[in-house]
Design a protein around this nucleic acid. Structure first.
Lengths: 339, 339
DNA sequence: TTGTAGGCGTTATCAG
DNA sequence: CTGATAACGCCTACAA
């Protein structure tokens, strides 16, 4: 198979030759480092422009033994939570001169590991992972290699390095208590199947404990994983045994809650008269619904921003808190009855 | 500011020394290239493993004068269209041994340009852009540098290199005709403001022409850009002058259509009795709605897959069609009245 | 302010 | 099947 002929890239040598200076002068000019007279710099810069000279990042990274690269791993993008966090971070990294690279793992620790392995070969400045549940091999590698690492969206007592997120158990508990206080006693939780998603498990456990504390019926868990979250929510609702007369359904996310609410209405149930619906995240979506969703607003953008700042500090040798836990905020909505 | 001490990475030299062979033998072993006895290879591989040796991608890219990197640029991720396309491509690139890198531009050609400039410094194998409307400087650079380039989601007679997408004008026309046939005569289009989004303009023009052909009222355009698409749709609907008695509203996307439909109902209008609602894309979301949305299903995953295959062929020197236009499919739904 | 020498970690090439 | 040598394009360190 004939390969496409590679175009000749102009190198720093070419520019230096044409400018009649040494390579170092060009290098210094391009990087904006001190040590070149303003006149020469301007001359070289415009010459470089004319010659379409683009410094090779690989060569730079190799020579400088460091790449200004930060890798970010998310489970999925089919969920406004992660684009929100991403947006909070990227701008900050950009301004600090770092390039960021993103990948999705589809909630598969093996994919996360294989992505990280390939990415680490670029000798990045740092790595950002979602959650605190990773392949042990990955954790070991990051610690062994002393790679600055930030875990987001979840917190743990024992992070790989830094972590910024919310305490999913505590927020689940808080949310559960609010709802239990309203008199609900037959709760269902629709999310990922137990053991699949650590955060789902934590949140469900919190909700469960809240209801257990008031002597309510044991929390029932339902639902699958993967695919469009609206659809997953609707399907998850379909798995509920209505003969058990549940009075409130918690969903893992607002999107799922919306899908579930649609399914409930299709099944002839009125919300909130016949059944309560509770989401999680407080996405903007909920504001356009005919009936604002009862949910828990997570500080997504803030997680991204705070995480990025802490990581940058860490990269500059400034110590920053290893563990940062941000609070959520209850959004009353009207998909549960007040009493 | 004291920098974090860099950990010592083990190099190919270290491994070679420990194995008592030359670096070339290690290099060959790691790459799985011919020229090493199976026994030596196994020995070296396991040794490398033990030593936590990870080949440096920068050095490899530098020496091989090529990085197996493909960059992908999307306007946003707050829209299931792009994650869908992405999913269609990434797997294919992975299997072909390419790493892909992604960025979002927020519909800003300047940001697209600056991303591309930084990315091109890595000497990637190819670049993928969304749409066919780019900063002229970017277009020039890609052509001049002979960078294999794929434009997706839109088609044009004169692509930078390759393009795979849909004909937004034609699909707008087809959709408009379907709706016009049902007897609607006072259409509104809610999307990006004219001039902001090339695809929105094309689609709106198609719809407009369809209605003009049947002597209907001139298409009215409304709506802003940016932010959560559900909210944008709802706000866009709010900008419509109901005194003009529009009978059908087209939205740029399904998400916006849903937001708009909610706003319509809040305004006391029944769908489809009082007003028709039409979306675009055929997202899974529409299947969970109480009333399935009338829309046009776009072949998103297919665009990703076909695009990836054509690009790979191109990289292997196999010629592939420069322009590939994929068809959409009308989804009747029930948010318009049949007559 | 500018230049020189050496090396970053890998692969291509050609010789054994 | 294996190894020596010379790039790859740039930056660090030191010298002028």
């Amino acid at each position: 198979m004939p390969k496409t002929p590679e175009p000749d890239r102009t190198t720093i040598q070419d520019v230096a030759r044409r400018a009649g200076v040494s390579v170092m002068t060009v290098s210094r000019s391009m990087r904006g480092v001190e040590g070149v007279s303003e006149m020469t710099r301007q001359r070289i810069l415009s010459l470089a422009q004319d010659m379409n000279y683009v410094p090779s990042s690989s060569a730079r990274a190799l020579a400088a033994t460091n790449a200004n690269l930060i890798g970010i791993s998310f489970p999925t993008l089919f969920n406004d939570v992660f684009p929100d966090i991403l947006e909070g971070m990227r701008r900050i990294f950009d301004q600090a001169g770092y390039s960021s690279v993103m990948d999705t793992t589809d909630y598969d620790p093996a994919r996360e590991l294989s992505w990280a392995e390939r990415f680490l070969a670029w000798r990045p400045a740092a790595v950002i992972l979602t959650g605190v549940d990773h392949d042990p091999e990955l954790r070991a590698r990051l610690i062994r290699g002393r790679i600055p690492t930030l875990e987001i969206w979840d917190v743990t007592d024992d992070p790989i390095d830094l972590c910024v997120g919310i305490d999913h158990y505590r927020e689940g508990l808080a949310l559960g208590r609010r709802i239990a206080e309203m008199g609900y006693r037959a709760p269902v939780y629709v999310g990922a199947p137990p053991g699949m998603d650590h955060r789902a498990d934590m949140r469900a456990e919190g909700v469960s404990d809240a209801f257990r504390a008031v002597g309510a019926r044991e929390l029932v868990r339902r639902g699958g994983l993967g695919g469009n979250s609206f659809v997953v929510g609707a399907e998850g609702f379909g798995q509920i045994d209505l003969a058990d007369a549940p009075d409130v359904v918690f969903f893992l996310t607002d999107n799922m809650a919306f899908g579930g609410m649609m399914a409930a209405q299709r099944a002839g149930l009125r919300v909130p008269e016949d059944i309560g619906i509770v989401g999680f995240n407080g996405l903007d979506l909920t504001t356009v619904l005919p009936r604002p969703l009862t949910t828990m607003a997570s500080p997504r953008r803030q997680i991204g921003q705070v995480g990025a700042r802490h990581l940058l500090a860490r990269l500059n040798g400034v110590s920053s808190p290893r563990i940062t836990c941000l609070p959520c905020e209850f959004v009353a909505g009207s998909t549960v009855r007040s009493q």
